[in-house]
Design a protein around this nucleic acid. Structure first.
Lengths: 343, 343
DNA sequence: TTGGTTTACGAAAACGTGGTAGTGTTGAAA
DNA sequence: TTTCAACACTACCACGTTTTCGTAAACCAA
């Protein structure tokens, strides 16, 4: 077992100075051809590669970006990571991933762990608990330290930084409008608890679509679900009452649960009940019937976020501390993917 | 914007030496109480945290582990990451993730990128291409450099290292046996191309179960799929011929595709066709009918792999280069999760 | 020979930390 | 008064790089 070779070892072996080795390897003209080639040959033979850590320390940049997300076993988030990873790789960055598990404390801890030099910048989506508490001091802190942060999807207005989002409100509006266009009148909304920013926005879009079409908006048709596993009862009750003929669900898990419940009761989708879900994931594609969804383009969000972050990082390099705080919020386009759950 | 404060800056500010500051913060008895408290107060006020990079360089360990996987938008792999992440976090490690995209070159590149000091050890699952080529020099290399590697799921016998796998053959055997127990006679196997190690093993288990039960084994009933999108035709042809009354699919994507094809042809699952899939993912849980699967316990694999790696890392610390190469292969238990696609 | 320019390399600092060894002062015991 | 220990702190080294600056030797022109 041979440990990785260092400049120092090469220098000692060839009986030259460390600087000579370093310069030879970087093809500096300062070094005579003979020495240069000798060093290069030796380095190649021993497969010399500069130590990343030492480089990071010297250059004050790690060439890696930190990702903080609420969950990883989650189609949307994993597509986002995929998008980030691809761009990062392209630019020679690695990604280090931390999962907050939707816990505020973990989010804070993870950020602190990474903020002490491990990474050059963050890409993150807020945990539920963080959104609920409204406490963003940990994010402010890293930003104040001069570390760029890009937020995506679950963002907050309380923090000034680059953001990548979809127009949740407009997308919800479009989805609900399409249900109305198909003659649906009683459209239910199945959503999460309020403090999740995107849930709120989607509710707004839903409401606006109804009102714009002269349909009464009723709180009774809004079903707020905290735990997927226990929601079946609520849903089946409402279905029994035939309270609605269409559903807009803020995620595909809710949607598929609704469809299954409806099927059990002998209701047909889409004839008796049309369903549209947010988040175009794998469930929608393979459920029976397949589910009409609003594509959320996680990959595009990820790659966009990564590009914004890296751009800022490389810009910093030139301007060197010049602070042009022109934060932008990128809105990724969504579109409706029509499948079998609507007519 | 205040950059992170360093020992040096504190020292300068308080007009003491760097070592005094360092020792004060580590509560060394060498330093008088007055100075110690003054330094600590100052450090706390400026929220001093030691720089990870400097520590890594000094201690020659980064407290982070590298994960190389073929895909990330993939239920099984993301559950594995989840398992790894949890354990890693518990022990104060971060995880940096690279996706090989099932490409040999990317796998090599990613490993090289991380191997130069960025991480303390690897947890990886081989890319298809790597398994196809049978070229593992990049892995041998990092192991030779003294960097521990733990492989999971898609492993190879050509590399000596710790491994975490499931008993693919036994699991496949159990699944097929359960189909036979339910009176199925013509059981098809839908699998991937041969060079993927797990695909091969599952085929072996399938074959053995048939033979043990005195059922003829026929190549005609083995369907090798390279691309999911184009497999529907093959499947429907075989279904038309009523060539089989049960299917064992090596992943849930194949399974759900088969079910959908069967449904289109008016065949009922499980009455006309029983289906079991490997990999208990999200599709199986939400498809209609829900699919009986072999649970692969990705999370357990991940946490086990992480534990093995970290244990080895911490052991190295003590023995310091003492090489007790007692590699182990951990076999994670699987079990059959019965759902609607079988009777 | 002198002065000046190349050529070819080395020494040292810096990045931030932590540990070992040392240094100077004080007070008390011998 | 000398000696020794305790105290409180500083110097220095190492981790692996890159880079700036310095300098010796060689060469050339005057």
């Amino acid at each position: 077992m041979k440990r990785k070779i260092t400049l120092k070892q090469i220098a000692k072996e060839l009986d030259v100075s460390i600087s000579t080795v370093s310069k030879s390897l970087r093809n500096s003209l300062e070094i005579g051809e003979e020495t240069r080639l000798k060093v290069q040959a030796f380095a190649k033979f021993y497969n010399y590669k500069p130590n990343n850590i030492a480089l990071s320390l010297k250059n004050r940049k790690t060439k890696s970006i930190g990702i903080i997300i609420p969950e990883i076993v989650h189609y949307f988030f994993s597509t986002v990571i995929n998008g980030i990873e691809q761009v990062a790789n392209e630019y020679g960055y690695s990604v280090v991933i931390c999962v907050s598990d939707d816990s505020f404390d973990k989010e804070v801890l993870n950020m602190e762990m990474l903020a002490n030099g491990s990474i050059d910048g963050f890409i993150m989506s807020l945990s539920k608990e963080t959104q609920y508490k409204g406490d963003f001091h940990h994010i402010t802190e890293v930003i104040n330290q001069g570390m760029p942060v890009v937020m995506f999807d679950r963002v907050t207005n309380d923090i000034l930084c680059d953001k990548v989002i979809i127009d949740d409100k407009a997308a919800a509006y479009e989805a609900v409008q399409s249900l109305i266009d198909n003659g649906r009148k009683k459209i239910a909304l199945v959503t999460t608890v309020d403090y999740v920013s995107v849930g709120k926005l989607r509710t707004d879009g839903y409401e606006k679509a109804l009102l714009d079409n002269g349909i009464a908006f009723s709180e009774d048709l809004i079903i707020k679900i905290e735990d997927v596993d226990t929601c079946e009862i609520t849903i089946s009750e409402l279905l029994h009452a035939r309270a609605f003929d269409a559903v807009f669900a803020v995620n595909e898990l809710f949607a598929v649960t609704i469809i299954k419940t409806a099927n059990k009761m002998g209701l047909k989708v889409p004839e008796d009940l049309a369903v549209i879900a947010f988040t175009d994931g794998i469930i929608s594609k393979y459920s029976t019937p397949t589910i009409t969804t609003v594509s959320q383009s996680g990959e595009k969000m990820g790659s966009k976020a990564a590009k914004m972050l890296i751009e800022r990082l490389e810009a910093e390099e030139d301007d060197d501390e010049e602070h042009t705080e022109n934060y932008t919020t990128e809105v990724i386009e969504t579109h409706l993917i029509k499948r079998e759950s609507t007519d």
